[in-house]
Amino acid sequence: MSFNGKVLLVDDEPHIRKYVSVLLRTLGSPIIFEATNGREAVELFERERPDLTLLDVNMPVQDGLETLPLLLAIDPDAVIVMLTSLTTRQIVEEAAQHGATSYLRKDLPRDELAAALREIIATSFEPDADE
C-alpha cells in the first residue's frame, strides 16, 4: 500500500510535525501541509481540502477539540484523526462524539505508530485510490 494523498498535519510542537511527516513519507509520497494551531488549520483545510487531517488536541490559540467541528462544518466527510499523547478516555470519547474518525497516540513506539497510521489509511480510503 502506498499513500499519496494530501495530509494536513496540525501540531504546535515542531518535533512532532517532523517525526510524523517522516513517518507519513515512509508510507508513500503524501503531500503534507503543516499548521501549528487550530486557526491555521482551518485556513489550510479550506484552501487545500486534505484527504487526511491529523489534529493535535492541546494547542495554543485554538485547540483540537474546538477546531474539529469547524473542519467538519467545511467538509462533513473529512477524515480527521486526533493526535493525543497519554490517552485520556474522556478526550477520545469527546472527539469521537464530535465526529473524529479515530485517534493516534503520538508517544507510541515507532512501529506501532506506523501500524496504527497504516490501518487508519487502509480503512478510511478505498483501495482503488492508490496502489
Binding site: E13, H15, I16, Y19, D107, L108, L113
Partner: peptide, 8 residues
Amino acid sequence: NPLASIRG
C-alpha cells in the same frame, strides 16, 4: 512526546 520523537 519530545522523548518519543527523539527516539523515533
